[in-house]
Design a protein around this nucleic acid. Structure first.
Lengths: 164, 164
DNA sequence: CTGCCTGCAAACTCTTTGCACGAAT
DNA sequence: ATTCGTGCAAAGAGTTTGCAGGCAG
């Protein structure tokens, strides 16, 4: 029953869509077709995606969307809690859908296939608070990242995580 | 006795200088006056410094040093163990002298005064190994960074860590 | 001598911004 | 009717690179 499937998908996107609209209204920002197209585009992305990838998808929904608007909308989506920014120091920023329950995530980055694994690391909160307190600071956020090589890649020249 | 002082300074720089020269020779790289000027310039830096700051100091020692050579030399100095790269996701990379004993350091970055505090965090090694093993990976490095606000800045509008 | 290293300037990547037009409220 | 948002293209920051000449080994 293809119709049912479509409905499920539509409904599952409805919550974040409402969340985003509410956020915009609360902030006195306008609900524009471009912002909604970019929001919807984020649903069709890999776990981690770049601004450029998001732009491509957004243009499939509304081909008038510009790169500038994507860059202007990403911080809004991040602040609204729809997305989370993941900076692994490679020059370009990655984004991913934010799950409500996962607050503190560490990343393991495979240097062979560039894949990013997300690992729950709740102790980061405690660490950030403890260390900040000693310095007279109030923690805002923390990030923990591990860079690693694929054993499979080292042994066979191919990486089993390559498929994305 | 000013002469003695000078000697102490000269001697204290001699070890890393030799370390660097040995590294270059071992790698079949040439010992050039520019590379040595950049090395020496790193001794006169703040705890954390940028490529641009290093260039300015290097030019005081040898005014022919170019920006390109600084950028080409920084990875060599990092690989040789003289410097450590600190990327806090602000667009520009920071570097600092690497101490032999401190393997795993976390950073606390003050968002008000941009100061970077280095904190020993030996558990990072354990964490990286544990988490990587579960994914079939071999850890290469890990970084842990806390972003925070100054309590003093929040309360008084001035940051007591501002002095650098 | 050979070829790595250098300075210069242009290129590059990702992101931000000034401007005049267009659309949401 | 007001503003705020938008697309476009240019600017921006930090870093890298192609090239012709220079110096280390």
């Amino acid at each position: 029953m293809p119709g049912a499937r479509q409905n499920i998908a539509a409904v599952s996107n409805e919550a974040p869509r409402q969340q985003f609209k509410s956020f915009l209204e609360r902030k006195g920002l306008r609900v524009t077709s471009q912002r909604l197209a970019i929001l919807d585009a984020s649903f069709g992305q890999h776990e981690h995606f770049t601004a450029e990838q998001l732009l491509a998808q957004a243009r499939r929904i509304d081909d008038s969307v510009s790169r500038a608007t994507v860059y202007r909308t990403l911080p809004i989506m991040t602040e609204s809690g729809i997305l989370r920014e993941v900076d692994i120091g490679t020059g370009e920023k990655f984004y991913r859908r934010a799950a409500n329950n996962q607050s503190q995530m560490a990343q393991v980055v495979c240097l062979d296939c560039d894949r990013i694994f997300e690992i729950s690391a709740p102790f980061m909160d405690w660490y950030g608070s403890t260390v900040s307190a000693k310095l007279g600071l109030t923690p805002v956020s923390q990030r923990l990242q591990v860079s690693a090589h694929c054993n499979a890649f080292r042994d066979t020249g191919a990486c089993r995580h390559r498929a994305r």
